[in-house]
Design a protein around this nucleic acid. Structure first.
Lengths: 356, 356
DNA sequence: GGTTCCGGCTAAATCGTGTTAGCATCCGCG
DNA sequence: CGCGGATGCTAACACGATTTAGCCGGAACC
């Protein structure tokens, strides 16, 4: 373990091979053939480089070329949501695949910190920045973000912005969830937990809620289903689902609950259990997100999964594409939608044909 | 939005101020006073720099000085554990506080990927690397990690290594958990869920399990408590807790369950509920980790919290310390233990004095 | 035989900063 | 008047790569 060991440089390889640094550089960047380096020299260079354990100094390359093979990932909160983990992982994998490293920063939602992070990343000459929100919402694009290639992830610009965005297809998810119930024959006794009945009855700033509702209503309207009640919840935590469900149970005997996320559904499970009702025999439950809790409860939840991994990966791809056509052809800002798909648990039971 | 805008360089500031780049460099790095730059020039430099919006090119500085104000964070898995999020956040905050950025990499546990990540980070001349495991376990230190300052986080080297390590104080946590039950008067009907009875009866490679057991037994032995049964589980998921608890219920009427983590406890809750037993009236439950689920169940779990945030922050601090005394005074590798503390939920009820 | 062309390589400039050595100028002192 | 010493600043090199322009010798062509 040679701690103070000096790294091998291009010059070292050049001297050891007996050629110029130019030659080594050309060979190792793969441009040797084009620029008329003989096969013999090329081979000698490669083998001494290998032998000495040469590795490019990325800082130096970055300084010279302006490309650092590095992208920045700024998010508001990592900790609050496990789902974040998969989004980050998707981004990481997509980046690593192309030999890119990822700077990571967390702003806590503070605009000052956001700006500072973006600047710090530009100072390190990142090739692009993914600006992510951990739950889908409108955001104020921080000053300076558009000084380089950038993509919004799981967020839409609050004001106009030329940046592309990557989001889950929440409307489609709403349709999918509603269709699960409709396909199982549910027409009566359906209740919404977490939002509604109006499209405006959603937690503040929740794009997901509004769009899910739109999709749900499309399918329900088409099938002639009218939810008996709908409970807007200020937050979407288990406690809110618990309270909302108890409220439902006070006046009704529900046949199906459509919860706007899994944590609400978890709370609903608790309230149903307390009331002596069984899932799915007495009540069917469908929700959104595919949070880990969805597969821990008994029976497992049928839920429309947030494609976190794909979202992260897609964002990086869009970023690369944006970086490549830098300068030319900047059309209208594009919004990419990533489809959400149904994960079938055991929380939905078809309505017997006799009673339909 | 000037996309192609060239960044302002030291030379630009120098020209605009009418001095040399040396002077500007000295002033802006705060060494102007020492090196006899007049107050007047210093002021002029600072104000033009501000005016032009000058920002240091970190690549260039890194190339020249060898310090990049950057550290690398390599972990095995982000996604599998929310807890990971807090660890990363702790590291991020500690790093940002000192003006450091963080490279993030995920290996998936693949030694090849681990090595590649470490090399890629060294190529980018990070000032140090935090090598983290998302659940406490022994790891093989990847080749090359010790070519620069490094710290193991939530992990111990499988073979000898000179690297320092940062870990939660699991033995202390075991003592704390056991003490909660003992202090509440529990002496009889105590069962262990997840490991035991022997210290070797633990899931493979689980440092946490072994150490928690040691702490538990220290307190139980001192108080004269003998667990009635102990169930080793291959994994520590809700299902395992559920199965183990049903097994207990088949033959016993437990008064207290000491679960080796919250997910096991969650499964135990499900089994107890099915059996018509109430927490904490019939059965007290204590566990470990302070996973989000601990505060979602009813009643909330009394759990010994993993100090993820502190672990991440501590690792970065240890890394900085290691980097500073680089070269000199490398003594025996140090293992830092971060204390774990009890979070009181409502899952423990004192045994009535009459029946003690 | 002179010019052109081509193959095969290299010298030198460049990216933006930090750092060492040293150049003027002025002051005070004997 | 000559000299040492402080004061205030700068020239030039280094960091480790990429890239442009061009050198040199031999072959081909008119």
């Amino acid at each position: 373990m040679a701690l103070g060991r000096r790294r091998v440089t291009l010059a070292d390889v050049a001297k050891a091979t007996g050629v110029s640094t130019t030659t080594v550089s050309l060979v190792l960047s793969g441009r040797g053939r084009d620029l008329r380096i003989s096969e013999e020299v090329e081979h000698r260079v490669r083998s001494t480089a290998q032998e000495l354990g040469y590795r490019r100094n990325t800082l130096s390359v970055g300084l010279r070329t302006g490309r650092t093979q590095t992208i920045g990932f700024v998010s508001d909160t990592v900790a609050s949501s496990l789902l974040a983990g998969n989004m980050i992982r998707g981004a990481l994998e997509a980046a690593h695949q192309r030999g890119f490293m990822l700077f990571f920063g967390e702003s806590g939602g503070d605009p000052g910190v956001e700006k500072a992070l973006v600047e710090a990343m530009h100072d390190r000459r990142v090739d692009g920045i993914v600006f992510a929100a951990m739950y889908t919402r409108p955001i104020a694009v921080p000053e300076g973000l558009d000084h380089g290639p950038a993509v919004l992830l799981n967020a839409l610009p609050a004001a106009y912005s030329s940046l592309p965005a990557v989001l889950p297809d929440e409307v489609g998810a709403g349709r999918a969830a509603a269709r699960v119930l409709v396909d199982a024959g549910h027409r009566e006794g359906v209740h919404l937990v977490g939002a509604g009945p109006g499209v405006e009855d959603v937690p503040p700033n929740s794009i997901a809620a509004a769009e899910r509702l739109v999709g749900i209503r499309q399918v329900f309207d088409a099938a002639g289903v009218r939810p008996v009640t709908a409970h807007r919840c200020p937050k979407w935590m288990p406690e809110d689902g618990y309270d909302a469900t108890r409220e439902v149970l006070r006046h009704h005997r529900p046949k199906a609950l459509l919860c706007l996320n899994d944590r609400l559904a978890f709370g609903a499970y608790q309230a149903l259990a307390e009331a002596g009702l069984s899932v799915p025999d007495d009540v069917s439950v469908v929700s959104f997100d595919d949070h880990p809790i969805a597969s821990w409860v008994r029976p497992k939840l049928t839920t429309v999964a947030l494609p976190h991994h794909e979202l992260g990966a897609k964002a990086v791809e869009v970023l690369f594409a944006a970086a490549e056509r830098r300068g030319r052809l900047r059309g209208a800002p594009v919004v990419h939608r990533v489809p959400m798909s149904v994960r079938h648990g055991g929380s939905v039971k078809p309505v017997p044909v006799s009673s339909r």
